[in-house]
Amino acid sequence: MDRRKVDVVLSTVIIIASLIILTYDNFVEGGAESDLGSMTLPRVVAALMIFFSGSIGIQSLKKLYNNAEIESAELIITNGFSGIFIYIGIFVAYWLAVPYIGFLVATPFVMFAIAILLGGRNWLPISAVSILVPVLVFFGSREFLRVYLPTWTLS
């Protein structure tokens, strides 16, 4: 994928967002009066963002317009992206499942799924690691850190 096209789109989005920050007053609610004002720094930062993203966008647009040869840093390698989407999907499912089925039940499935995604086929050791690690983390957190990871709430 040509990163220069992404640059142009991203710069446009950042500029629009920064313009909204510069012009819209309702991003701040309440608060006491101060010498600086609550929105001064965000607006200064937004103005700087317009400048920097503008320069990135214009440079990329110029290169695209001139049909300049693409450099290695400007190429986004998309091979293997399907794995990333699957991983994020697994993580989102993990986040949704943990409050209901608990850390100890959800984690072995998640670890097993990620191991398979990474090409693991040694079922026995993978299963052992997927069960042992959550148990160690759960009880380790409880005993040493006094952190109580979520438990089963379906009853």
């Binding site: 993990y94 097993f112 990620i114 191991a115 050791p125 993978i126 997927s130 983390v137 957190s141």
Partner: peptide, 20 residues
């Protein structure tokens, strides 16, 4: 150790760390 042992563990540590 092969990456399919290491990175599922990293994921779990990241999850537990973020929750902690």
């Amino acid at each position: 150790l092969r990456r399919y042992y290491i990175f599922p563990c990293v994921t779990v540590f990241a999850f537990a760390g973020a929750f902690t």
